[in-house]
Design a binder for these strands. Sequence first.
DNA 1: TGCTCTTATGTCGGATATGACATATAATTT
DNA 2: AAATTATATGTCATATCCGACATAAGAGCA
Lengths: 108, 108
Amino acid sequence: MRESKRKRLEAKGWKLGSAKDFLGLSAEEDAYIDLKLRLADAVRARRRRRHLTQVQLARMMRSSQSRVAKMEAGDPSVSLDLLIRSLLALGTSEQELAAIIRRSKPAA
Amino acid sequence: MRESKRKRLEAKGWKLGSAKDFLGLSAEEDAYIDLKLRLADAVRARRRRRHLTQVQLARMMRSSQSRVAKMEAGDPSVSLDLLIRSLLALGTSEQELAAIIRRSKPAA
DNA sequence: TGCTCTTATGTCGGATATGACATATAATTT
DNA sequence: AAATTATATGTCATATCCGACATAAGAGCA
């Protein structure tokens, strides 16, 4: 998973503490963002494994292709809700979901 | 955890497929709701274990007491995002988070 | 009984995430 | 290279979720 240093670089619109209180809960924020990016990667991986296009997945979950693209890109406008609902729509079991969440950020 | 048959009963405002397409993705919907309720219980358990009031937890995560109450009650107006951010604010590690998610609904 | 602390429930204006659409940029195929 | 298919990016109106507030309900104690 070479594209996971992406995480830092791709702080595209993440607004983080910057727009907020500038000091404080950056520890949880970090874990939260990291989790989202990990789920995003998992969605893409699972969708591809099932040979589905973004359009197909979008229809399965009554969303749209652009939403799926943003999801997989780790766009900050995408919620954890949508990510997890996507994984569930892809048939991910709770065990598998847990495994995705448990897995910490790959070694550098 | 006797209060988990609550799940079915407490379909208070869950609107489910009812307001939606009436047929279709109830499998994922079920998993989704079940997950939320499990996280809700986990928040309450962890908050109590740390001897925090809802007001205190609310302040820690810059939310409000009423939101925390709704979270713990499994109110449908609460998102997965908020539930997970709460758990992270309570110092839950990703390992622990995974354990909460993995754990399937208790036997009856 | 009142008093204090905690939690529950209802509501609301404002904030954010949503699907949809248009369109751009790959990536494949012919 | 042109056509086709897949994915990316930007924008927008509406739906949903948010914190905040008011207030009720419960628990424990003076």
